[in-house]
Amino acid sequence: MRARQWAWLIVKRVLFMAPILFGVATATFFLTRLAGGDPAYLVAGSFATEEVIASVRAQLGTDRPLGEQYGEFLSDTIRGDLGTSLFTDRPVTTDLADRLPATLQLVTLALAFSLVFGLALGSYAAHRRGRAGDRAVRFGSFSALSVPDFWLGLVLLFVFFFKLDIAPGPTGQIAAGGPAPQDVTGAVLFDAMITLNGAAFKASLHQIWLPLMTMVLIFTAPIARLARSAAIESLTSDSILFGRACGLSNRKLWTYATRGALPPVVTFVGILFSVLLGSAVLVETVFSWGGAAQYAVNAIRQSDFPAVQGFVLVAGALSVAIFFVVDLLYRVIDPRVRL
């Protein structure tokens, strides 16, 4: 009974997602065209002759009418063809598939840790409301929101790599000459885990902790702030007062309040994921992480037009997919909006 309702809900949500994905694809196409004018100039460079530009146009297909290009872009995209990278000369889809797992691993882990720390700090602050602990959390999270992530990455590199020498330099997922696991997904830590390669796991953990810490230090802050206000709202709610009046233990009341703070936090996770993807662009660059985000940055620097377009499209689609998951998760947590 319930299972069927859930299945129906998922179908409905997927159907709802389709037009948004279509919109995302359309927006990607027109934004990159309108912003760029004629990508052929970008690709060919400022000193290219007319003939070169014409041949680049033919290669990119930008010599044809916009409507025709749009139609072909859509049908290609549906078939999973995002064009060929002008720089690596490989399909953009393949390039992204190789590198996306590394980015997703970093982003997902950062999200998970930020959530855990943010919820803990936020509900701690709510319980110590107005006292020193609360003020420390509030000031700390307020300040962390002002810190640029890429700069924090550099500061951490200076402290932990140059000064203390307990972290690796900006060498990416695998240290030069270090143990590497068999390449399954491209997310090294994950690959090491599923291939049960202990040495590689340890090595990749060593590689990831600094970039991870950079992101977690910053993105714990908004979650802590949100969780704090949500927990305060739920702590001062009638149901907590009634729970107290029924003699529930503080521990139980604490779980009530924390759980009550979850729904708004979960909603926020959808937004945060998309912000983290953006942050990954900078953090990957700082640490030479070699994921999809850094690939996109290089593509932009080299005017690799199809690669940029492909990455923007994939990032948009990923955000939409995350919203879909968050929406379902919300329904699991809060029975009031269920089905």
């Binding site: 709610s237 009638d238 149901s239 907590i240 729970g243 029924c246 009550g260």
Partner: peptide, 13 residues
């Protein structure tokens, strides 16, 4: 002890 507004007194989740 019983309060007013029973619907908010019960824990919603």
């Amino acid at each position: 002890m019983v309060f007013q507004n029973p619907r908010t007194a019960l824990y919603p989740l």
